[in-house]
Nucleic acid binder design. Structure first.
Lengths: 223, 223
DNA sequence: ACCTGAACACCGTTCAAGT
DNA sequence: ACCTGAACACCGTTCAAGT
């Protein structure tokens, strides 16, 4: 889909880590997780696959950098709010929306422990808890609960996105899952059958935020 | 490491899905996630890689079945407890210990949405919430919060296990991470630096359960 | 029906050779 | 110093041929 102009555009920048990360994000967003290969990346950047290794040590590092760019952006955009409870909610929404827009981020966040994207989230949520008056000895447990919850959603959401590539199929997809729940063994799975009716009308974002509220309510009991 | 007996042991069972899953679990446990290839699996079962496809559609399905076997076992072993709060805690511990013993399960749980292992967990935790007297309209959100939290831990724990293959390195590993936190930009990461001292002495299992308590406290506010 | 294993269509990564 | 791209050492999966 290249537009052929009369003059060939000059390659202004040589290869750089920054350009690699941008091209990686674009491939992951547009073409999907499976499409990201060093060969495609090299083609897009008009070079050979070996060149990439001059700026990044491995594919894993590149994925981590791409996820950190997205999450870092989402976290930084939330820096303005002062009220700590609202700030936690805004951070949660920002991360949810970032993963909604880039489901591959959810996959990546669960692949490497203590990667930079997670540390940024930890810091931002931790700051809110200190301001909420949560006692010092509860800080570590409370933040890690929030972060684990967010990462759990991230993983599930990304997994669901892999299975349902087109957004428009969402309703049909949920119907299928609900149908599976209803066909589970009645003796073994009464709860799932009961809850199956809630699946189709539910909204992921609302449900995610409901979980944040539950955890916040629990955290506030430590004051 | 085969013991050579005078008579060649008869191959009693042909290949079966059950045997495939058992061999898969053994390879994942003993040799690690990266070691699981259809070629190795075939070698262990004294057959060719193509034979596997007569019992399982893909590597993904095999991984899902292996994870469901482990999580299903952990959940079923917890079926005896009657008091619902204790039951939630016991389920959380069982899943934690299962992932601790088989870190690859954590990876797998985050790879496919609504896989059977997750449904079993959903059902078991849901049952407890109904018995706790949580109102009907809060069920879905409350269970999914617990499950997301557990899966978040699962992912992070599995990721950490991939980075720290030997259990004995745990202390050194945590020291390294804590050191990284202390070297973060003081202006940008005051919370991480403050909390760095908590990392080395912390116990994953205790912290995980602390999170369960926080979420339960939040859930109980809905009554 | 089930198994076999060569072959296919890929990967990430390395490295000698170029500029 | 950075790039190039062929080559290496693998993968998951398929499929014609066997039993």
């Amino acid at each position: 889909m290249l537009v052929h102009s009369s003059r060939i555009p000059r390659r202004t920048d040589p290869l750089s880590r920054e350009r690699l990360v941008q091209a990686t994000i674009q491939i992951l967003d547009v073409d999907g997780e499976d499409a990201l290969t060093f060969r495609l990346l090299a083609t897009r950047l008009a070079t050979g696959p070996g060149a990439i290794y001059h700026h990044v040590a491995s594919k894993n590092e590149l994925l981590g950098a791409a996820a950190a760019a997205v999450i870092g952006g989402a976290v930084h955009d939330t820096r303005t709010i002062n009220e700590p409870l609202e700030s936690v909610r805004a951070l949660a929404v920002a991360v949810f929306d970032a993963i909604d827009a880039h489901p591959w981020v959810g996959t990546q966040l669960t692949r490497e422990p203590w990667q930079f994207a997670v540390i940024e989230l930890f810091e931002a949520l931790g700051k809110c808890l200190t301001e909420l008056g949560v006692p010092r000895q509860a800080w570590f447990d409370a933040v890690s609960t929030l972060v684990n919850y967010v990462l759990g959603l991230a993983g599930q959401y990304a997994a669901a996105a892999r299975f349902r590539p087109r957004v428009t199929d969402r309703e049909a997809f949920l119907q299928t899952i609900a149908g599976q729940w209803e066909r589970l063994d009645p003796a073994g799975f009464p709860f799932m059958r009961e809850i199956a009716a809630d699946l189709a009308p539910h909204d992921d974002r609302t449900q995610f935020l409901a979980g944040i509220e539950l955890i916040l309510a629990g955290i506030l009991t430590t004051r």
